[in-house]
Design a protein around this nucleic acid. Structure first.
Length: 482
RNA sequence: GGCGAAGUGGCCGAGUGGUUAGGCAGAGGUCUGCAAAACCUUGUACAGCGGUUCGAGUCCGCUCUUCGCCUCCA
């Protein structure tokens, strides 16, 4: 079986083979750090995290680069637009660097909570100004860029393939551009800035051969991708809204500079909507992750995201996410049960489940199908365990390891050192085990004597304390709940 | 206006020609002292109208509706 990936560049699924056998290079557009992360960030980074996890699981050595944008994007398209980070710094009465640091930390906190693995390299735009300047020089020298009044623009006329990703023709760009930019100093309305001269009072600026200024909107990704992954990379990921102009500009400036294909597979994830409407800061309907984490297990949010395909829109609602949490709990319960179950004689064949899971993931990372396979496996296991004879040791070991591999390593919906969703204070585990043993013993005696008032009291009080008791055929079991 | 995506049972959400998606919620049942969990049974959905086909959520056309991009945005 082979992995196929939907390539946005050709709008079709293609068999995936990396450029260098066994090694995959992937670059994903990172966040601009001027605010706390929202559910849209979660969808994007959970999706690509799962892509990376599956590639690694499939045996590839993956180098994953995800930038942190800490400069260079303006609040509007006019020359006098304010840098978003500077603006936030002004609003919070502090320094742009502090803003960038604050929200970078905040971003990683949220991603860590959802078990999004850190990228191998997380370069910042401000840390790569020389690389960006070098790329601009390269483009000027090869005739693909020109300088006017301290600004440098990329000449789209010099790159025939401009717009090939988004499917926009140059004609349209001309037509829409002419009205807006009639008096521009650009040679062509679609030309985009590589370097901008800083205006009076602009805080984030660097010296360059052309002016004291700052890099253009699209430059950092090209420069950093080339630096850390090479001039041609296997996969570049990002949100669909970035296809145009961001990714088309990246392609143009990179391929014009190197003469090589920039990206072999373009992957674009779809958006989160709230009640069917796009989530956006300007619409004031964005769902802040830190807020969400107060009431929902971060891993349940991850699970919710993975229950739809990365190329589908995901509609957020309270009820939908609650339903996901309940479903995830069911899978976790099966894993708990399997870990505690005694071995026996019953055979259990997990091969069909493993095959279907792999096929689903290999089919453009179809996590909703993969998860449905896990639910079916869960049901089959529960049915077998319900029969009380126990699964034979070999099969049991295999299926446990498979289920752990799927939920912990591949999907990241279960914590490696526990199940997830329980209270965190497990340090006193040993002591607690002893106490619980005693309590369950007392309760068992009470039940034996039909003193149900006493046994129910123990159960109810423990539940209040966050410990749930279940009576099974093999005796009572307990688990901690969050 | 241009480019693109989509409309699936109460809700979420897969599925691209022929057999059960899956989850959540609901109903009934098994088990249990009672719970909880689990399991069993239960829903015959695919925007509308035409067409192709032995056969269509699944292909084609039209209509309606929704959404995204075209300005920063995951």
């Amino acid at each position: 079986m082979t992995l196929s990936i939907y390539n946005s560049l050709h709008r079709t699924k293609e068999k995936f083979e990396p450029l260098h056998p066994g090694m995959v290079s992937i670059y994903v557009c990172g966040p601009t750090v001027y605010g706390h992360s929202h559910l849209g960030h979660a969808k994007s980074y959970v999706s690509f995290d799962t892509v990376v996890r599956w590639l690694r699981h499939s045996g590839y050595r993956v180098r994953y680069v995800q930038n942190i944008t800490d400069v260079g994007h303006l609040t509007d398209d006019a020359d006098e637009g304010e840098d978003k980070i500077s603006k936030q710094a002004r609003l919070e009465k502090t320094d742009p660097m502090e803003i960038a640091q604050l929200y970078t930390r905040s971003f990683y906190e949220d991603m860590d909570a959802m078990q999004v693995l850190r990228p191998n390299i997380a370069p910042t735009a401000t840390g790569h100004i020389p690389e960006q300047i070098a790329l601009v020089e390269r483009l000027i020298n090869s005739g693909h860029a020109y300088e006017v009044n301290g600004n440098v623009y990329f000449s789209v006329d010099s790159f025939p393939g401009y717009g090939k990703l988004s499917g926009r023709t140059d004609q349209e760009a001309v037509q829409s551009g002419i009205r807006v930019e009639a008096r521009s100093e650009k040679r062509h309305p679609s030309d985009f800035a590589l370097w901008k001269k800083a205006t009076e009072g602009h805080l984030m600026k660097w010296s360059s051969p052309w002016s004291t200024g700052y890099p253009g909107w699209h430059l950092e990704c090209s420069a950093m991708s080339m630096k850390y992954l090479g001039e041609s990379i296997d996969i570049h990921g990002g949100g669909m809204e970035n296809k145009f102009p961001h990714h088309d500009c990246e392609i143009a400036q990179s391929e014009a500079a190197t003469g090589k294909p920039y990206v072999r597979f373009w992957m674009h994830n779809n958006m989160v909507t709230v009640n069917g409407v796009k989530m956006g800061k300007s619409l004031k309907n964005s769902v802040n992750l830190k807020e969400l984490f107060k009431t929902i297990d971060p891993l349940a949010i991850r699970f919710f995201i993975l229950q739809s395909h990365y190329r589908s829109q995901l509609d957020y609602s309270e009820t939908a996410i609650r339903a996901s949490q309940a479903g995830l709990e069911k899978l976790r319960e099966t894993l708990r049960r399997l870990r505690e179950a005694k071995s026996g004689q019953r055979p259990f064949d997990m091969a069909p489940f493993e095959l279907r899971f792999t096929e689903a993931m290999d089919d453009d990372f179809n996590t909703p199908i993969a998860i449905s396979v896990l639910f079916e496996l869960s049901k089959a296991l529960n049915t077998t365990l319900d029969q009380g004879e126990g699964i034979d040791p070999d099969s049991r070991k295999q299926v446990e390891s498979f289920l752990e591999s799927c939920t912990i390593d591949v999907l990241g919906i279960v914590k490696p050192d526990g199940i997830g969703g329980e209270a965190v204070q497990m340090q006193s585990g040993k002591k607690l085990d002893g106490v619980m043993e005693l309590l369950l013993e007392l309760r068992a005696e009470a039940r034996k004597n039909k003193d149900f008032a006493q046994s129910d009291k123990i159960r109810d009080r423990l539940l209040e304390a966050g410990i749930e008791i279940k009576d099974t055929k093999e005796g009572a079991s307990w688990s901690q709940k969050s």
